[in-house]
Amino acid sequence: MAQNVFQSRNKAKPIVYHLRDVIRDRASEGVTFRLRVPSLQITQGEKIALIGESGCGKSTLLDMLAFISQPTDLAAYRFRPDIDIDAIDVARMWKKRQMNRLGDLRKRHIGYVMQTGGLLPYLTVRDNMLLSRSVLGLGDDGTVDSLARELGIARHLDKRPDTLSVGERQRVAIGRALAHEPSIVIADEPTASVDPFAAEKIMSLFIELAEHRNITVVVASHAWRHIKRLGLRRLAHHTQRSKDGRTTETVVNG
């Protein structure tokens, strides 16, 4: 163990996510959807893309990476958000159902961009972006303002989300995911509900911001062509349906 730590500390890029034989089953209308991850390793600063049709299990994997969905079965799940700390045994936390500790890990290290904003309608744009900071006890130190400038939404800071366009809302959601300076950002089809032209602009901006801050990014999308140009690593996965049609299994490796 001590040697292991020593080794990984000497590595330039530590492994943020280490998953082995992680399975998540989901039953719906008599059909079982299974997501299987035989092995997945994501190193710090990597930009990962999960490409595929909706319903193939992309969101399920992202939710497990964000600790908001529990694997049905797993062999190993280690999480090391920071080079200065040892790898955290997330598998054990899940077995002990320490949801609040997992929540604490998430709020400290992870930013999450939902497909449809997930902004709170009763808060202004500024307060929505400050939310991820305030749960950590961080004040408004200008981060939100500079993020808003970079995202092109500075003039909307004191408006409520319902007065913004969908694209602007997604920019706010990205801002909220970055405002507390996380080391990982997970984005579930962040541009799916925006027109293709705006989608490319927003995605580019998002990756650029993450690159700047050396943030590890995992993004799900179905538009590979654009993502590829941004230099993301594509996670290999294939989906197969059993002969009786009662189970659909997606296997992700990488």
Partner: peptide, 15 residues
């Protein structure tokens, strides 16, 4: 439920 889930996503605890 969705808004409450967003709060949990951001890091609010169950309690």
């Amino acid at each position: 439920r969705k808004e409450l889930s967003v709060l949990r996503l951001v890091g609010f605890r169950t309690g």
